[in-house]
Amino acid sequence: MPTDASVKKTSRKGPSRSEESRSAILEATRAELAESGWRTFSVDAVAKRASASKQTIYRWWPSIGAMCVDAALALVPDSPDGGRDPQERIATLIVPLEAAARTGNGHAVLRGALMAAADDQHAGEAWRAWMSRDIRQPMRMVLAELAAKRVIRRDFDLDEVIEQLLGPLWHRICVIRGPVKEGYSVQQARYALRVYSTI
């Protein structure tokens, strides 16, 4: 027979307080990045916005930069199914970044996270791990498969192609300091297929 304590434990619905607090901190981090950027980022402002203590923030993240990267990456949705069309398969791996950059102040949040990744070791490791797992490795597999099927040539460096696909996006976010235009992913995929076509 269950005890009163077990009934209370199993009957609770919704996220735990720690999950709610973490979500509030990440949301406050995004707001602070959008308003102040990385260079003048304020942990005090985040704690105040999220109604959380700085001790909690420092306990949950190895650095403030890592928290900024986590907050930005939470904006990036999963890649949709790319189907079988070569252009669509390439584009779908870039679409999540385009979507994040085009959502509200997403471009400013991503810019702040990129700057944090450049300045902070923990942030840089988190950003590179995400890029490798979610974009670079899947893109390498798609490009290698297309080359094996002779849809595109094989006389090129896969990593260089990936840099060409993503470079304009980072330039737009970090240098132009504006949102990414609609259709960026499809345009870049179309361009890559045209440049590296076997025809």
Rank of each mutant, 00 (worst) to 15 (best):
R194G: 05
Y184A: 08
Q187V: 10
R150C: 02
V175Y: 12
A100F: 10
S51R: 09
G106K: 06
F41P: 00
A50S: 14
A74G: 15
R140N: 09
G124D: 10
A113S: 04
V186I: 12
S185H: 04
H122F: 03
G178P: 03
I199A: 13
S185A: 15
D70Q: 10
S79R: 08
I94S: 01
A123S: 08
I176S: 14
T103R: 15
D78C: 08
H171F: 15
L110G: 01
R39N: 10
A100Q: 03
R30Y: 01
V180M: 03
T198A: 09
D119N: 01
P80M: 14
Q87V: 02
Q137L: 05
M1N: 00
I176G: 06
A117S: 12
V95P: 06
D78P: 07
Q188A: 14
V151W: 04
V161P: 03
W170G: 07
A24P: 03
I90V: 08
L93D: 13
A129F: 04
I64C: 06
V161M: 10
Q187H: 13
A50K: 06
L26K: 08
E19W: 08
Q137N: 13
D78R: 06
Q164N: 14
R136N: 12
L75R: 08
Q121H: 08
A113L: 07
S6F: 05
D120I: 00
P2T: 05
L75D: 00
A101T: 08
S6L: 12
E125V: 11
S63K: 01
L110T: 07
W130E: 08
V43M: 11
T29H: 05
K54N: 01
A99L: 14
A100N: 06
R133D: 12
A117K: 00
M1Q: 06
A5N: 02
R17G: 15
E163N: 14
D134K: 15
A91E: 09
Q121D: 12
R102T: 10
K149A: 15
R12M: 11
P62Q: 02
Y191E: 10
Q188R: 14
V46Q: 04
G167H: 06
L143C: 09
S53N: 05
R12Q: 11
L169V: 00
R102E: 09
M139K: 09
M141T: 14
M67Y: 07
G112T: 05
I90S: 01
R172P: 03
R102Q: 15
S21T: 13
Y196Q: 04
A74T: 01
G65S: 02
P96C: 09
G106W: 00
P2D: 11
K48V: 12
A126H: 11
M139C: 09
I94A: 08
T3F: 00
E182K: 13
A108E: 09
V76H: 06
D120T: 04
E88L: 14
R17Y: 13
R59C: 11
G112C: 02
D119C: 09
K54H: 07
A144V: 07
E19D: 13
F41C: 00
S132I: 14
A116L: 01
E20Q: 15
S197F: 11
A192N: 01
R177S: 05
V46K: 05
Q137S: 11
S53W: 02
A74I: 00
G178K: 06
S185W: 04
F41V: 06
G183Q: 08
I199L: 12
M67D: 01
A74C: 06
K181A: 15
S42F: 02
F41S: 03
